[in-house]
Design a protein around this nucleic acid. Sequence first.
DNA 1: CTGAAAGCGCTTACAG
DNA 2: CTGAAAGCGCTTACAG
Lengths: 343, 343
Amino acid sequence: MTKKISIKDLAKELQLSIATVSFVINGKGEEMGISEQTIGKVIDLIRKRDYIPNNAARLLRTGKSHTIGLIVEDLGNYFFGNVAKVIELEASKRGYNVFLCSTDNNAKTAKELIRKMRNSSVDGLIITPTKGLKDELEKLSWDNVPYVLFDRLVSELDANYVVLDNRKGSYDLTKHLISNGYEDIGIVTIVNEMSQMQEREEGYKDALLEADLAYDKSNVLKVRFDDSPEEIVDAIAKFVKKRKGLDALFFATNYLGVYGIEALKKVKIKIPYDMAVVSFDDNDLFRLFTPSITVAAQPIREIAVQAIDLLLSVIEKKELTDKYIAKVIAPVLIQRESSPPKL
Amino acid sequence: MTKKISIKDLAKELQLSIATVSFVINGKGEEMGISEQTIGKVIDLIRKRDYIPNNAARLLRTGKSHTIGLIVEDLGNYFFGNVAKVIELEASKRGYNVFLCSTDNNAKTAKELIRKMRNSSVDGLIITPTKGLKDELEKLSWDNVPYVLFDRLVSELDANYVVLDNRKGSYDLTKHLISNGYEDIGIVTIVNEMSQMQEREEGYKDALLEADLAYDKSNVLKVRFDDSPEEIVDAIAKFVKKRKGLDALFFATNYLGVYGIEALKKVKIKIPYDMAVVSFDDNDLFRLFTPSITVAAQPIREIAVQAIDLLLSVIEKKELTDKYIAKVIAPVLIQRESSPPKL
DNA sequence: CTGAAAGCGCTTACAG
DNA sequence: CTGAAAGCGCTTACAG
């Protein structure tokens, strides 16, 4: 390794003190009354020698790592992948690096990741919480580590949030089906105490009740997040065969919709002739499938930007506040071919 | 911020020297001949106080950050998102953190990211190179920063590589079309000097020539990476309308296939009746679309694992070697409904 | 305008 | 078995 040059080397070469060089590096040259000429000489040498300040030393001294941690459910998922991308870009613009990782919705993994991140001295965290993460998050608050939760709430935890109005998205989708004449609407969701899935089920229920349609438990299929793709596809296939009366099916999240399409294909149910389909979340498949799928889309960019803005504002705020901020983002109903007016 | 406890605090509380505590923390207790009892007491207190070593100080002292940088083309893309996920998981298992970011195939962004990563003292890098990155990568070699390139080669640069056998994947897809009776096969690719796109075009060409079919420039459509989705869709739509004689279309990468499906839908060309379709890379859409799309898939897990293994072996190797290693991964041809034997 | 020096939290060679 | 101390590269209060 060609020895890295340090601030000391620069100072020696320029016959200046370390302090002077450091001030220039940190843009405090003028403020400290260092002559323009000196400043110029320092800057020239920095460029010439390709000097890169040692972040570890800086961090050790200042306690600011200019790194944030981003913990999402699944990096391989379209929604999270793109949220991560936008957050990374915005953070970078503002001088922050991002540590990124996925929990696969596993609480143990999530806890370990949070610890690892703290261990690496991140200045703050953006987290998709899993179930059972409340204690760990409370510890963060306790230790004044800034963090923002997104995509879902943790019940009875005061924190900074960026969440979608899940109830509304679900309600809108269901209402759209109802107003197009569908009356026996099934829902496929996951067994989950996480707020967003419950809200989606509620939105569905509310729309049904409002239209004087029965909310029938036998119209609800719940699969488990941990189930393999094959198990989920089979479960959906079985469900629609058993509940032949259904005229529409609502998938409560991205990947359920994907598996649902696969399941319907398998049991030869034609969308929308045999059954209308709508789903939460948008993706390439829904957009381009024939028929294209009606969805409640999450405004990815807005969610990501709000999350990073909120986090950085907390990090950079001088005084600590006890006030938490919640941003609620409205989903966008996109009507497509999979849910036409019923004949 | 509740003051963080340091190794000094632990030492004071236990009436031991800092060195003793440090040895225990680093598992060198026995080696240094510290009594079992003392080791036990230290470990207990660490747990009790929830002590987390300060990584910055460690890094400053040892020069090892246990962090690697991962620079991919686009985190929002199915392939890269999943590669990132696997790399992150494997790195984590082996005690490494990952800085992750996307270049959007922009050389300037890539250069900045590499600098930022170095600045953050990563122990090594895994990079999807963009065009025009050769100088920056040579600097890395020069400074003995370990790195592994993946997904594509940089011409005339000796380095560690993990790449797909792109020529073979393309050749296999084209040959598959030919043996199913297609004779006028178009290809949609991107204007790009990057090795993998050239190899894919070559594989296509080789298969044609081998079958005594003409390799006709007018059957090749090249779009630009920077073009907007709408522009690409339009270009493809125009291309197929102009080249009505085509009986099959080969998309050289994931997102071109996605846009291609959209374009064909727009101009009402039915797959596979009017035109067979095959694509490089697999994804949900290709798998579930009706008809499902024949692809040459990249074994994501294998690519990711090979890349991280290769990088960590270089990082952890004591002596520096001048030998570079190239791993070539075989793509997997998955025949589906979009390319049946021609009637 | 500039310099000498402390100290961030750790690791490790050295001394006993 | 254990302790005192140097030093990693920086920032910054203090002194001139």
